[in-house]
Design a protein around this nucleic acid. Sequence first.
RNA 1: GGAGGCAUAGCUCAGCCGGUUAGAGCGCUUGCUUCACACGCAAGAGGUCAGGGAUUCGAGUUCCUUUGCCUCCACCA
Length: 877
Amino acid sequence: MKQLPKTYDPEAVEEKIYDMWLKGGYFRGVIDPQKEPFTIVIPPPNVTAQLHIGHACDNTLQDILIRYKRMQGYAALWIPGTDHAGIATQIKVEEKLRNEGKTRHDLGREKFLEEVWAWKEKYGGQIINQLKKLGSSCDWDRERFTMDEGCSKAVREVFVRLYEKGLIYKGSRIVNWCPDCVTALSDIEVEHEEQRSHLWHIKYKVKDSQEYITVATTRPETMLGDTAVAVNPSDERYRHLVGKTLILPLVGREIPLIADEYVDPSFGTGCVKITPAHDPNDFEVGLRHKLPVIRVMDDNAVINEKGGKYQGMGRYEARKAIVNDLRELGQLDKEEGYAHNVGVCYRCGKNVEPVVSAQWFVRMKPLAEKAIAVVKEGDIVFVPERFSKIYINWMENIHDWCISRQLWWGHQIPAWYCDDCGHINVSRDTPEKCEKCGSIALTQDEDVLDTWFSSALWPFSTLGWPDKTPDMDYFYPTSVLVTAYDIIFFWVARMIFSGLEHTNQKPFSTVFIHGLVRDEQGRKMSKSLGNGVDPLDMVEKYGADALRLNLVSGISPGNDMRFIISRCESFRNFANKLWNAARFVLMNLEIDRNELPEKLETEDKWILSRLNSLVGEVTENLDKFELGIAAEKIYDFIWDSYCDWYIELTKTRLQGNEDDKKISAQKVLCYVLTETLKLLHPFMPFITEEIWQSLPHEGEALMVEQWPVYMQELSFPEEEADMESIMKAIKAVRALRAEKNVPPSKKSRLIIVTDKDSIFKHGEAFMMKLAFASEIDITETAPENLEEMAVTVTDDARIFIPMAQLVDIEKELLRIDKELKKSREDLSKVNAKLQNPGFVEKAPEHVVNGEREKAARLEALIENLTESRSQLEKIKS
RNA sequence: GGAGGCAUAGCUCAGCCGGUUAGAGCGCUUGCUUCACACGCAAGAGGUCAGGGAUUCGAGUUCCUUUGCCUCCACCA
């Protein structure tokens, strides 16, 4: 017999258990042709810093799925890894350098990258350690990094293939430029926020005329680059001026007044200044009208030499100066307050500047088509389903993807420019000479790729692609992708089209989307608010199991959740509850084999039947990704059915002196506990494993045990009902006693009047213990000296308690009347249903039968209540 | 301008395909050193399931609508 400490101590258990799992090699995904594969690739956390509570949630969900499937006999593989997170990490390291008074340019590219790699080693390691602390059962032998050799090879392969197919091109386009990060961004890396600003109305003089045209703009500084003013061709007000020349204020440049459908005549003055170099729409207009493109800002958003006297000013400094100058010239017609959406960089939060720039793009339309079809046809399923609409909508309106970044940290673009002929050599390996002119003077493109370019390949680059590997053959396509809804576009969408394009297969079958973890007030967790929660703190305080259960129970798929610390405490209490249940079982255990006894008592069948239903339901819930519901059901079963009832019920047998009943109780206790541990294991891996190891068992570890299956022969509806009868009686007695504050130490005789005497005969011992009886009489007729007794009633028994303390006829009458009223109301409702032909005809049989049974129960209860009532009345008079 | 979500106990939230008396945690009230557990046990209070309408034998659950929050997408100067 093994002794467990009185309180569960996660710290003493978790590391030991995790090491045991590691030593056993249970995390390894092993190719086994006899088994079905089940694969998950981790959404690689950024190596920017430590994990936050959102990661803990994401990884707990994955771990639950992978452990569940592993126990079901799948060849389960969970591939871990981290993401280099281009801009984010580079910003972090530059910040660190700034604190040391340095910039990346002081170090130079090579030295700087050394710094970043050192950073990566530090934080990447921390992240892996954190994942382990959470209990994640990843195959650590296969840990990957988006910039490791294999992933880099995949990146080059993809780049070259797409380039050769004409799906990657380099071109001058308007891109979102972050002057602070000094790089181009893709469209989705720009967030929009409303900013209060002004709408400035500026007068442009018509050449050789007294007339003026007024345009409105939110970015007056860009006027330095204006090359036209446009009006709608149908606009009567300006028709006579179309084709005329205007004088650009401050600059003096002559620009045409053009007509273009793009202009909305009803907005503002109906005239739009056209700055092709600094606005995406103007760029398009410029193309249509063959307008010159004059870029007036440099990469830091400082006005360049094209800006005349404003050269050297920052964009907002220039804005101020220009507005002032226009005002002085009398060419500022109006200045009005204006709130509008401004794009900001998703990494640094600074305003993004649309500028024309030569960048690399992925041509999206051809790739998107397949990616839309695969979801529309249900080949890839989103859970919850509603996210597929969001995905499809985005894919259908997709723009080309700007993939080049003016950073140093990342995959350098595999393109080499020939210094002699200018030809672009795109190649998997560093070319020795220009493929066009043979020159050896080649310079590689300085830029790196968008960090998401490599993440997009993650499901197959981690399995060895582009090489043909056994892993690729066996584990690909992966099974489920688990992630939050905020990176559906960044990541999920790009994995889908990349997988389809490069492997000709979908990268995964199911996308399981969860919400974001917010703080107790429902705010997003962020650095600036300082409301972030460190998962390791929670692990330390409450244990990993409690944290995990907090993160998955009481949540619904796809919806945000609040992280409430007090809930960690309740789940720690739950762990302790389970611990003590196990402690109780072990204290009473004299068997060394886990098996069911030959002869089962009613209460055994009751708990086994309940367990069996639980097995069926939990399995179904997990298959439908209803993890929260599954967790709650297991929680309720353990606390309510197993601890509060079954353990209490077995005490009479365990403490009795009938050996066979004692042993059979031990066997059922042990069996049910073991099966329950299996069900709970994916959710609370540490404590379940630790307890399981103490119980009689044959296998090596709980985590590789077989997942329980529903068995018809373990369903005992009759015994369940019988036990419920006894439980109801026990509850009724307890309620009566509690009302009068009778302590458990004060026992009393119980006289049970029932026609189900065999059931109650069996329940005698339970009533003794749990209803605090000193002796029990089971009869079919009510006792005599009623005035000395209190009575309580269930639907199949009247229970008399000869205890003066409880006798209070007036109060009893009141209580019985109240109950009678309620029961009669319920009964009439049920009868109304049953008398409704529509209900009886149309409702399914089990529902109708259920109502009939309910009616019968209520009738019995009413009869018992009425009987008791008339007796009380008799005593009263 | 589009699209989506949320509204259920004092608080935070579950509630799957419509079908017992709408649940949990925390909080609250009362009692209990009941030989696993006070991180516990027992009993209890507390709900017009946001308002209105429709479908149905039956609606917290489906549909429409109103109100109030929230999010995402979108090039209106």
